[in-house]
């Protein structure tokens, strides 16, 4: 829905893109399309099938937002017993529930737009790149980079469990700018030294459980190996 919040920009974007299928904002749907933006992640068999169709019917598939990119908060259920998860869903489990996975678990994803909510600036950057034929690259550095460029006081120094060092940059350090620790909503980047950061957090006095809880919030799927390593450590 963040798409509709692009406001002024959307008019400009519409000059170049012809929106054929927008389930929440437009009445009729046409396929195939050049670019499909998929928000969220499938949690039922039907949704998986729908995703496979979208992939077949589009030239470019963009995973939009954390749930699509990392499995996101729904990925948390992977940590719990199925029974518990159903309790969380208040007795109304999604029909034939399946584990929420990143979209790339099912289909090839051409581009990822990270964040919860995803960054409008990056979406515009991607669309611009597609229109002018420029390469769009994922940020390969952390939130700390953008945080330091803004001369913020580091929240780690004040004893907060900030995930900035292992979280992919691109949000312009939205949370730390507002004095809130980075919860890792954009997921880890490829080069992240996750074990190094765990060591830092342990030296600061955080327990294994606290660290695992924090890593699991947005990207359990991406961190699960390091989490099982940490549990045994």
């Amino acid at each position: 829905m963040q798409f509709l919040n692009l406001e002024a920009k959307i008019l400009e974007i519409l000059k170049y893109l012809n929106i054929k299928n927008f389930r929440l904002a437009k009445e009729y749907n046409e396929m195939p399309v050049d670019i499909a933006f998929v928000e969220g992640t499938p949690t039922t068999r039907e949704e998986v099938l729908k995703l496979l169709t979208i992939r077949k019917e589009s030239k470019i598939l963009v995973a939009l937002g954390t749930c699509a990119v990392t499995g996101g908060v729904p990925g948390l259920v992977n940590m719990m017993a199925k029974k518990e998860a159903m309790e969380v869903y208040d007795g109304f489990p999604p029909d034939v529930p399946i584990d929420p996975k990143p979209l790339e678990y099912y289909v090839n994803v051409d581009y990822n737009i990270y964040g919860c909510t995803f960054s409008k600036d990056e979406l515009i950057e991607l669309i611009t790149s597609l229109i002018i034929g420029k390469e769009y690259r994922d940020k390969e550095y952390s939130v700390c980079v953008e945080c330091s460029l803004r001369e913020n006081n580091c929240l780690l120094d004040d004893g907060h469990l900030c995930l900035g060092p292992i979280t992919r940059g691109g949000c312009k350090a939205l949370c730390p700018n507002n004095g809130k620790m980075c919860l890792g909503c954009r997921g880890p980047y490829e080069d992240a030294n996750i074990k190094g950061h765990i060591k830092i957090l342990q030296d600061m006095g955080f327990t294994k459980d606290e660290i695992i809880e924090s890593l699991s919030l947005f990207s359990y799927e991406k961190f699960k190996e390091v989490i099982s390593w940490l549990k045994e450590e």
Binding site: S142, C144, C154, G164, P165, I166
Partner: peptide, 9 residues
């Protein structure tokens, strides 16, 4: 290299 988290700070 094992300690550094490449934050650039």
């Amino acid at each position: 290299g094992r300690k550094c988290v490449s934050c650039g700070k």
